[in-house]
Design a binder for these strands. Sequence first.
DNA 1: CTGCTGTTCTTGATCGATCCAGAAACCGCA
DNA 2: TGCGGTTTCTGGATCGATCAAGAACAGCAG
Lengths: 374, 374
Amino acid sequence: MDDQPRADRPRDDHSRADDPRRPRPRLRLEDLARRLGVSRTTVSNAFSRPDQLSAELRARVLDAARQAGYAGPNPVARMLRTGRAGAIGLVLPEPLPFALDDPTTSELIRGIADACEERRLGLLIEPGALRAADPRVIGDVAVDGFIAYSLPRSAAALQRLLAGTTPVVVIDEPRLPDVATVTIDDRAGARDAARHLVGLGHRRFGIVALPFQADGYDGLADAARVADPDYDVTAQRLAGYREALEEAGLDAAAVPIVECAHSDEGLGREAARLLLGGTEPPTAILAMSDRLALGVIAAAQELRVPVPASLSVVGFDDLAAASHSRPALTTVRQPLRLKGYAAARLLLETPGPTADGLDLPVELVVRRSSAAPR
Amino acid sequence: MDDQPRADRPRDDHSRADDPRRPRPRLRLEDLARRLGVSRTTVSNAFSRPDQLSAELRARVLDAARQAGYAGPNPVARMLRTGRAGAIGLVLPEPLPFALDDPTTSELIRGIADACEERRLGLLIEPGALRAADPRVIGDVAVDGFIAYSLPRSAAALQRLLAGTTPVVVIDEPRLPDVATVTIDDRAGARDAARHLVGLGHRRFGIVALPFQADGYDGLADAARVADPDYDVTAQRLAGYREALEEAGLDAAAVPIVECAHSDEGLGREAARLLLGGTEPPTAILAMSDRLALGVIAAAQELRVPVPASLSVVGFDDLAAASHSRPALTTVRQPLRLKGYAAARLLLETPGPTADGLDLPVELVVRRSSAAPR
DNA sequence: CTGCTGTTCTTGATCGATCCAGAAACCGCA
DNA sequence: TGCGGTTTCTGGATCGATCAAGAACAGCAG
């Protein structure tokens, strides 16, 4: 009788139990099976398919497993055989601490987590997809599907993901043909925001934009930067703004645009100072996110430009902070949490690869930060 | 020459590209090797050990891989063989949306993420470890190590983790022998907080506590609930409070304790109403977290009990919100982000299983919410 | 007793890679 | 030419499970 794990074909010689630094040799199904005098499959079934063996034998197996300190089938081996990983991957452009600080991203994660919770799946976060070096690691993990959030068109990590066979759902951007993408109607939302301001009588505008290119630039965006954007969301929102401005007979291309590298109050403040510092400052600023808009309001208050009396501000997102700010922010509401949830469901429900996406509606929410110009 | 994947033992015939719903048959190293007329190992080396083959052949292999749509070695198979997963697991007691809303937890996650970023590892979050059913799924994923955060002693999920061979580091609790645990000096911190109030001259106290038992109870905690606590952190902090009170000659066991099921402003408010509603209300309240303390301050303001004039409040954690509140909160600072970072480092650096833990210092931060009683 | 159905358990193949020992090719140099 | 020493490449074993097909045995009708 051998009671040792793998008495017949011992592991590599140097992994004897006498080296305390090495993890103790892992017990396998087979070792347990041998001790019990049953087959591997029987032990496997005891854990994974209770209907395949008698209740009594199953109890005996589980009991022996507990005694022997066998915690259950090795998840990696199971994955290899079954092809299921029990987790979905979330690929984020920025490092994780940044993502957690950003209310937009963390609300989105909540939505994804809702879906994971329903299905009892883990969520594997792979942040930092934008860092230049080492694109190798992204996508090199065991998951049943990837959600890629808000990557620039040029991101190498996304190419890697799409080249593989694991299903991928993209949220927001890039919008690629033949890739399932969950989006909102950015263009319509932006257009409604601009129309609202035009309707109030504004004629002099400024735009505080999300990045056009993934190069970390902050400052005035000239035609070249805007011409071939790396971020589709930015492009769509700009198109929406311009559409409304042109409807009103304005020269949309002449409206100054300040680009911010991130959606962040500090950068919004700087951008607003730039726009408000000119000789003919705008009476209305369109900001592509709420955080940027809140920065704009902060800058206006510092410069003693009353909002909305002398300056109207409209954001995008409708974060919780938008309704708490003073004045409360007029903005375009998007269903962030639902967006995450929908993406996860799309990923999990579609059996094979799909290109069918989902476009969620947005809604203009008028609050106190916008009014007719004096 | 055969150019088909696995020409010798073909996959299911119908899974050629003509059925768009099926995942296309995954190419293996071997298929690629056959096409190129080299061996599996050579192709493997081209991806994973560039020094093992000539640069020219490597280029040819990678080129052919790109052409064929081969995205690189299957991560699961690699894991099985190498035993490395490229990710660490974080086991949280609550569902993920809840964890993201909680500043304590999310700061901790940031710290863990810092370490993951350094090592280029993914972070696999397994939330909801406390839910009763289905303990099976926790720990049934491929990771190189687990961090378990703030679980009650009775949590079945933790037993499962410890039974396995994957290394585990526990943060905060439970404090078990032979398990590596990263803690703070909860008892000393609590003692300092209580000493501070005693030193100011307070004699009538109330305690707003974190849970003693994992049963969702809110309300006054009698001796029975306190006697055999399921949460070590709560027990330690209470011991610290009591130590300082007894030093001052007070009957610590007589100080009323209100237990809250979560660290949450709303529950802190309710708890404070309970404590302040009595005939001889306390002049000082010790709260085991900042969120609870902020709730206490909110309740005091609603009840027109001025803080700190008529009521002193001391929290625990030193969240950002503590210094922004009115009045700014006196509290015990703990290095949350460092705690997460340290746990991850401990997990990654220790080659085998360790029981060595780490105890991080805390520091009393006196602000405006505490003063001498009238 | 034979034949049939159904339960219970076992064997051999397989998932897709990496590792190891060794073969083949190539090198310089006596 | 012969020989040790590199460099480059190969095939078989292995990681630890699941799955499909089949064996052993039971109960039951004819």
